[in-house]
């Protein structure tokens, strides 16, 4: 991973579009996200927020445009290569290894970044440092009492915490979180926000979020996406005051 020259955005999206058949979902989105920024993408249902994440992380190919990660072009690369360059994402629908233990989930998330690659000769039980890091993550996520439980048997909030843990485990510098607090109670949301703040310290964070409290609490910059286009982007106060945003989205929610 190259160290970006100062001023190079951590993530730079230039005029990307995406169509599924005849339907244009993303209609020319451009965004620059500075290193260390906490960026929230909001917008009504069907605005293309998750699609945007899928394009950035390489899950779907883009129809046109360019995407740069720390100055390097990534829009033609498969997801695993993008990940190795320092971008990691979580999923809106919890995406963990259901049948494997919680500990095993975290250890797997650590493997590539710790240089194990496809090794079929390193016995995992002897990798002291790796195992210690996985244990540390378990503690950090407050999941140590669930260590040996199959991840599929965790409660919903615990699964979401594990999802975040697996996303940050590889040490990526750019973290994409897709609705990390969706479906949570208020207490759970507070806990999750605390966790996100803690584990993404010093990293670039991009998140899709519906909960306005979370958005205004966490984000330095908010981008509003409506029908596949950016209608506003800037600091929370500016976005909140923007009449177009109020009309399109916030108006309905924030009196």
């Amino acid at each position: 991973m190259s160290i970006p020259a100062s001023g190079t955005p951590a993530l730079s999206i230039r005029e990307i579009t995406k169509s599924f058949g005849q339907t244009a979902i993303i209609r020319g989105v451009s965004l620059d996200i500075a290193a260390g920024e906490r960026h929230a993408i909001i917008g009504p249902n069907g605005a293309g927020k998750t699609t945007c994440f899928n394009l950035i992380s390489g899950r779907f190919p883009i129809s046109s445009g360019e995407i740069y990660l720390n100055g390097e072009r990534i829009d033609q690369l498969p997801p695993h290569k993008i990940n190795r360059m320092g971008l990691s994402r979580s999923f809106q629908i919890t995406s963990i290894f259901q049948r494997m233990s919680v500990f095993e989930n975290l250890r797997c998330a650590l493997l590539w970044s710790r240089g194990y690659r496809y090794s079929f000769w390193s016995p995992l039980w002897m990798q002291r440092e790796l195992n210690a890091q996985a244990e540390f993550l378990l503690e950090d996520l407050n999941l140590h009492t669930r260590r040996d439980l199959p991840a599929g048997l965790l409660s919903y909030a615990e699964q979401r915490a594990l999802e975040i843990g697996m996303t940050i485990a590889g040490g990526a510098s750019v973290i994409l979180l897709d609705e990390p607090t969706a479906g949570m109670s208020n207490t759970e949301t507070d806990y999750a926000m605390d966790l996100i703040r803690r584990v993404t310290k010093g990293k670039t964070l991009v998140m899709v979020e519906h909960d306005m409290k979370v958005v205004f609490d966490l984000a330095d910059v908010i981008t509003v996406l409506v029908y596949g286009q950016v209608i506003a982007s800037g600091p929370p106060e500016t976005v909140r005051a923007n009449p177009a945003v109020q009309e399109a989205y916030l108006g309905a929610l924030v009196e």
Binding site: R59, S95, S113, Y118
Partner: peptide
């Protein structure tokens, strides 16, 4: 372990650096 992981969820494995 990654064989188990791709069995359970191949997409997640991709987003952890594994092909």
């Amino acid at each position: 372990r990654m064989a188990n992981a791709t069995r359970d969820n191949f997409e997640r494995a991709q987003f952890m650096g594994y092909d």
